[in-house]
Amino acid sequence: MAKQDVCFIILAVLTMVSFVVVQVVSGITMSRCEKHWNFTNRSNDDTDLNPPGWAFSIWFVIYMWQAAWIIYVLTTICRQCCGKPIYQLLNVVTSPFLAIFIVNQLLSLGFFYIYIMQMDETVTPMLSVFSLWVTVLLCLIIYHYQMAAVPPKLACQLRKDVTCLIVLVQNGLAMYLSWLTVADMLVLNSFAVYTVGVPMTMSSCLTLTLLAVIVTVYFFLELTLWRKYVRYTFTTYPTVMWGLMAITVDKWDPQNPTSIYVLVLLLVVSVYFFAKIGVTFGRRSAKGKYAALQQY
């Protein structure tokens, strides 16, 4: 029987503990939300891009997805193949990955503290959301690097576990990262309007342009250079679409250029999403059911 990695086990348990703590604090914080959540916590800081409170119900889906992959990782400690625990065989979710995710959870507590304390500024929330974004991005980089190193034969042998990693870890973190990207854009917009003094319409249009550039660059990269890594990532576009749809429903005004811009961007992201589905499953059908997994 292979020797267990004590450090990994401790980090896996701490990941679950920190996640549960964040859920408790999150529940308390969300119960204090008003109709419109504004990232600067000032009641007069509403902008053309602030989504309604119900839009943040997506956090429930994000948290449930994180809970699913955390539980899955814990099961890999108990299950073995070829005399070794699954987590050691695949070595995709590693100790550095878990350590960074724990840091992310601690930073989440910091963000909730900022909201509860009603800090009257925009810089602190902006830096807080950005730090969350960086930690999730680092987790995904580690994940993709390790997944690409899994031998093809092992991936076929443990294809159920590889599928769980793709569905739970890869898509769960991608949804988390996508929503944090939207949040970064919203808090940046508030910062530009209420701290820098940029006119609201101009700031909103610049923010939407930045988001459009990010999504478009990602779309082309995932179909070319990043195809090997993110071809089975499907949660990115629906998450962005959810945010844009919420803004459109809540703030639609045909006389407002921002509303038109949001609607156009929503349609563009939708086209990207359906194109992604068509390209992915078109290539999958051409190569066979498990050929794509063998590339890992």
Rank of each mutant, 00 (worst) to 15 (best):
A68I: 09
Y145A: 12
R159T: 04
L158K: 03
V136H: 10
V169T: 11
L137I: 02
A68W: 08
I77H: 03
F101N: 14
V73N: 12
V123I: 12
Y143P: 01
M147D: 05
I71T: 15
E121Y: 07
Q66R: 14
Y145T: 14
L165P: 06
V92N: 04
T76M: 10
M64P: 05
A148F: 00
A67S: 14
C156K: 15
I141Y: 03
Q66K: 11
I77V: 11
I70P: 13
V169S: 07
V123D: 02
I142H: 03
V134W: 07
L158G: 04
A148K: 11
Q66L: 15
V73S: 15
K160H: 14
Q146C: 12
Y115Q: 13
I77M: 10
V92D: 05
L140T: 04
T124Y: 07
N91P: 04
V129R: 11
P151K: 03
F112K: 10
F111H: 05
T76H: 01
V167K: 12
P85L: 04
S95Q: 01
Q88F: 01
T76S: 05
Y113H: 14
F112S: 08
I77W: 01
Y145K: 15
M119Q: 15
Y145D: 04
L98I: 03
Y113R: 13
F101K: 07
P151A: 05
V129P: 11
P85R: 09
N104L: 03
T94S: 09
L106Y: 08
M147K: 15
F97S: 01
I77L: 07
C78N: 06
L138N: 14
Q157A: 09
H144T: 11
A149E: 00
G110T: 00
L90M: 07
I166M: 12
E121N: 15
I70N: 04
N104C: 06
P152R: 09
K153N: 11
Q118R: 15
C156E: 08
S128N: 13
Q66T: 13
C139A: 04
C81I: 03
M117K: 15
Y113M: 10
F130S: 08
V73K: 14
D161L: 04
I70L: 08
S128P: 07
Y113P: 00
V136N: 03
A99K: 13
S108E: 01
T76C: 05
T124V: 12
L89Y: 02
Q157E: 10
V93K: 11
L74D: 01
I116K: 10
A68F: 08
V129C: 10
Q146R: 15
I100T: 09
L154E: 02
Y87S: 06
M147L: 13
Q118G: 06
P85G: 06
F111K: 01
E121L: 03
K160L: 12
T122C: 12
I77Q: 02
Y115D: 02
M147C: 11
V103N: 08
I86N: 02
I100H: 06
Q146W: 02
E121G: 15
L154Q: 02
I166S: 10
I100V: 12
V136T: 06
Y87F: 09
V150W: 01
P151T: 11
L165S: 05
L132T: 12
V129D: 08
